[in-house]
């Protein structure tokens, strides 16, 4: 029996889909059998971030309506054969799947996989309610800025109300240089305000743009800082105790030189 984890945020554009792709792929790289479910019906994106957009035949609405079997809609990842994607429908809307259909679907996936990772749409409407319906744990993604943290706080309240206690916090797009200058909230500010456990900090990293361009999750990129951050998050989710990485940019010349030639 696997575990169902929903990746949510409230605010759009904070990096839910990127986080889903990286956590899912990272868990698969550790050998777990993983399925990533895109519940953002009408605005599907997880397929593109994963680089699997050309393989879609059936989608989550087809499965919910019985147009195909669950197995037919699952797309096998190119990189790992223990990793699958259940894509969202692009032409329907967020009410195309009901909460009870979603629960049943997730229940079935749980039998087959070690981890079911659900990519939640932005907002707090039906799509959000469906996405969290079958979940057992929740990851809240936020950025270190007022609007994103405010929405995260609202989401944490709504998760509580649905009995999804103790969500895990990921702070995405942190810029260490700005934190150092005092122009960006640091990890402790966000953690203190939201009062939930932090499981990872992902620095703003150009490597994410490159990896999304290519459809290759950054978690597999051994040289990027964001990739390292995601690998740590994955380990924490699977139960390993890993300290938060130090994101401080070193001012030492030797370190800059090392970075330049790729030794870390």
């Amino acid at each position: 029996m696997g575990e169902v984890i929903v990746i949510t945020s409230g605010k759009g554009g904070v990096g839910k889909t990127t986080t889903t792709a990286n956590i899912g792929t990272g868990l698969a790289a550790l050998g777990y059998k993983v399925v990533m479910v895109d519940t953002d019906i009408g605005l599907r994106n997880l397929d593109v971030v994963m680089g699997l957009e050309n393989r879609i035949v059936y989608d989550i609405v087809d499965v919910a309506n019985g147009n195909c079997r669950l197995k037919q809609a699952l797309i096998k990842d190119k990189r790992f054969e223990n990793s699958f994607l259940l894509p969202a429908a692009q032409t329907k809307d967020k009410n195309a799947v009901s909460t009870s259909q979603m629960k049943e679907l997730v229940g079935n996936l749980k039998q087959e996989f070690d981890y079911v990772i659900i990519d939640c749409p932005a907002g707090i409407e039906q799509g959000f309610k469906n996405a969290i319906a079958g979940a057992e744990r929740a990851v809240v993604v936020t950025n270190p800025e007022v609007s994103a943290v405010r929405d995260a706080d609202r989401i944490i309240g709504l998760l509580e109300a649905e009995q999804l206690h103790d969500p895990m916090l990921i702070i995405n797009r942190l810029r260490p240089a700005m934190v150092k200058k005092g122009d960006m909230m640091n990890i402790f500010d966000s953690e203190d305000i939201l009062a939930i456990k932090i499981i990872g900090v992902v620095p703003e990293d150009e490597a994410i743009v490159v990896s999304t361009n290519r459809g290759e999750p950054a978690v597999l990129d051994m040289t990027s800082k964001a990739g390292q951050a995601y690998r740590n998050i994955v380990k924490r989710i699977s139960g390993e105790d890993v300290p938060l990485m130090n994101l401080e940019e070193s001012d030492r010349f030797v370190d800059k030189l090392k970075k330049l030639i790729g030794i870390r």
Binding site: D153, R154, I193
Partner: peptide
């Protein structure tokens, strides 16, 4: 000086807005 840090402004604004959000929600 500390007072000009935009981070301090951000956390303070956030603290206030959340007091209200949380009270309205419940």
């Amino acid at each position: 000086k500390e007072s000009s840090n935009s981070k301090t402004v951000a956390t303070e604004r956030l603290r206030l807005v959340l007091v209200h959000d949380r009270a309205n929600v419940s």
